[in-house]
Amino acid sequence: MNQTARPAMTEELIRLSGITKTYGRGQAAIQAVRGVDLAIGEGEFVAVMGPSGSGKSTVMNILGCLDTPTSGSYRFQGVQVERLTRDQRALLRRHYLGFVFQGYNLLARTTALENVELPLIYRGEAAAERHAAARAALEQVGLAGWEDHTPGELSGGQQQRVAIARAVVTRPAVLLADEPTGNLDTRTSREIMDLIGSLNRDRGLTVLMVTHEPDMAAYAQRIVRFVDGRVESDLRPPPPAPPPPAGEGGTEAA
């Protein structure tokens, strides 16, 4: 286990210990995750890499409370997540987590504005504030003027921007992105990554991102690599050329 990541953390947000996930039973059982320990601090931008079947997406889904681990402990801001009820986990998602998926997962035939509003409706915000917040979020992802367009009328990059706006409109603690650029061309991918990177820098949003592409992983400050359901390496590459102004004197990777 690589321990070098620890000194960089400001405050621990997430800690996974001994997480396993088994699909199926008996002979046909497949162990997707075989004991993962991982700690993530507030404000980090972590890229999760690894070949398909390495368990990285499963770990992401467990982190996002979309899936439940077979065993192990998951602490979110010190709260023991596996002890929470289904509804409590939903509330955790509602208040602390934002999701971006490879397939966008927007509501079909629903305008960009209404898609972005959706999490705010579940949070019970009043109509006026909801509209204002959703418009602001769309503007922030560069989609001002596209509020009334449905996903069918938007390009892949624009749809992913709407998804990002929907994920951050609630000002979550963590943004979980599962291959957010997997369906996009290189140029659009870079735009999306610039957007996610700026959210991390300017807002201090913690970002966890699964990706296949080293180019995209390079936007992160830390790269966790999965192989065969275990963490193989946990590295902090030197920050790219113009480093963000507020430095924390990050420790170099081993």
Partner: peptide, 19 residues
């Protein structure tokens, strides 16, 4: 199928089962 995915989206966003 469409509705199941829709329900998945809603749950991921933080909707409660009863909502």
């Amino acid at each position: 199928t469409e509705r199941t995915r829709e329900i998945g989206i809603r749950l991921a966003i933080g909707a409660l089962e009863r909502e």
